[in-house]
Design a protein around this nucleic acid. Structure first.
Lengths: 143, 143
DNA sequence: ATTATTTACATAGCACGCTATTTAATTGGA
DNA sequence: TCCAATTAAATAGCGTGCTATGTAAATAAT
């Protein structure tokens, strides 16, 4: 039936994620940021000077995905990589002044996107929604 | 805080959609299909011989995205494009025998992925979940 | 009828996700 | 100690999403 795709959780999840990404992209583009860069910045604003492996684990993406995102962030002047003292294979990721200066505005933009997405949902509905997403994520992670 | 990204609806939506896509990809790969191709096939199994513009609207992606997906599907022997009689700009998309033969197996694979994702959710929870996703999608579409 | 606009599709170029492979450094075991 | 296994990161190649442009056909407006 025609409803199969539009009713399936998988289709809705994909559609919803695309709309989230597009909305966030539109809002942070004036700051010179892309969505995946913003996620890395969230981690680094929280604690700077981490390894690529640490960021990879924190955001649950593949190592190669993170490596490419960091390459673009370095190109764009958002991070610098300094050799680690303890492990000569690793390079620690450090925010630039430019990236540090973007924190408030970027977080506000992301907050606005979340607010728009969740408009009309009361606190209980928001809690239910995120709890259900977490359960579904858990189901797919083990398996 | 560390919880910002992992608790935000946007992060969860992105994560969930990636897990859905990865699970579906793994399940339909033995059939020689990729996720976006499967979505197009769902539309064509339902009604064949449509225009690219029609498929674009049905799946709510950009025209260029659909054009590229259809190019790969043609390359992979899933579709053929026949000139439209009424409009010489348009080419109607037709399933090949190979694509037609994959319907049952591919739908079963997608159903299994959805079942895994929604395991442990009763009917009411599933209904709540999809209803909430639809509301959130609606919020982001208008604006 | 001619011109302007719209429509259908293709293409270029980019972001970001993935798998698979390679290189270099570190760690562990014989 | 020396060799094997592991670990950190880079790179290649691809799928799928996007915006921006270009081209040809169809439609609308003058």
């Amino acid at each position: 039936m025609d409803q199969f795709q539009h009713n399936s959780a998988g289709y809705l999840a994909n559609h919803m994620a695309r709309l989230f990404a597009a909305g966030l992209a539109r809002r942070i583009q004036p700051l010179g940021l892309a969505p995946a860069q913003f996620m890395v910045l969230l981690e680094l604003w929280h604690s700077d000077g981490r390894t690529q492996a640490d960021l990879t684990a924190a955001l649950d993406v593949e190592q190669a995905t993170m490596a490419n995102t960091l390459k673009r962030m370095e190109r764009d002047g958002l991070i610098r990589r300094l050799p680690s003292e303890e492990d000569r294979r690793a390079r620690l990721i450090h925010l630039t002044d430019r990236a540090r200066a973007l924190e408030a505005e970027a977080k506000a933009a992301a907050g606005a996107q979340n607010a728009q997405a969740l408009a009309g949902l009361d606190e209980a509905e928001r809690a239910t929604f995120t709890a259900l997403m977490r359960r579904v994520i858990g189901n797919m992670q083990r398996g």
